[in-house]
């Protein structure tokens, strides 16, 4: 677990996946539609990814392809990927895709992610270094987490450069200066 402390990685694993139980499970309240505290074989339940993954390792469930990678999304990405609102589908679209692809044995997810990122990357690139912040905010709302990070990396380095070019205070007081006296008193 290389990303054990990565908060994004943790939230990614909270995404819901629909699974079908292969074994009956008693004494668990994870199926809200069930009247008793047990899950029957063949029932379809939405579980967070981390739980579904663990259960699948024990062959208790089988995972379906999550809703954010359905046919409708794919068609939209093929049509005009730059305008698809991927954030509402899943803010961690790419990371989630990378995690889920090997588990659901769907070989088309990988290429889908790559082609979506490739074309959306261009959109981020053209907006990131030029557009003023408020003007681009509408565009920001459809970006996934990863794309937002990319966008902000470019924005902040450009803003830092502009600030430097405009000038301003040339010297910054080091934070440790002027503290010594206070601690003595």
């Amino acid at each position: 677990m290389a990303n054990y402390y990565d908060i994004d990685d943790i939230i990614t694993q909270e995404e819901f996946v629909s699974v079908i139980f292969q074994k009956a499970a008693g004494g668990v309240g994870i199926d809200p539609s069930s009247e008793t505290d047990s899950v029957e074989v063949g029932s379809k339940v939405e579980l967070p990814f981390w739980l579904a993954h663990e259960l699948q390792l024990r062959q208790a469930v089988s995972m379906n392809v999550p809703a954010c990678f359905n046919q409708k999304t794919r068609l939209e990405i093929q049509a005009d990927s730059a305008c698809v609102d991927l954030r509402s589908r899943s803010p961690y679209f790419y990371e989630f895709g990378c995690k889920i692809a090997p588990l659901v044995a769907d070989r088309t997810i990988g290429p889908l992610l790559l082609s979506a990122f490739k074309s959306r990357y261009k959109e981020v690139l053209t907006k990131a270094h030029t557009a003023a912040y408020p003007a681009a905010s509408k565009h920001l709302t459809i970006l996934t987490k990863e794309e937002t990070h990319l966008y902000e990396a470019a924005q902040s380095s450009m803003a830092a450069f502009k600030k430097w070019r405009m000038g301003g205070p040339r010297f910054q007081r080091a934070s440790i200066l002027g503290r010594k006296r206070k601690s003595n008193e």
Binding site: H129, L150, A153, A154, S156, S157, M158
Partner: peptide, 9 residues
């Protein structure tokens, strides 16, 4: 200027 962006991309 472009270093953080390119790195991430």
């Amino acid at each position: 200027i472009v270093r953080p962006f390119i790195g991430r991309a």
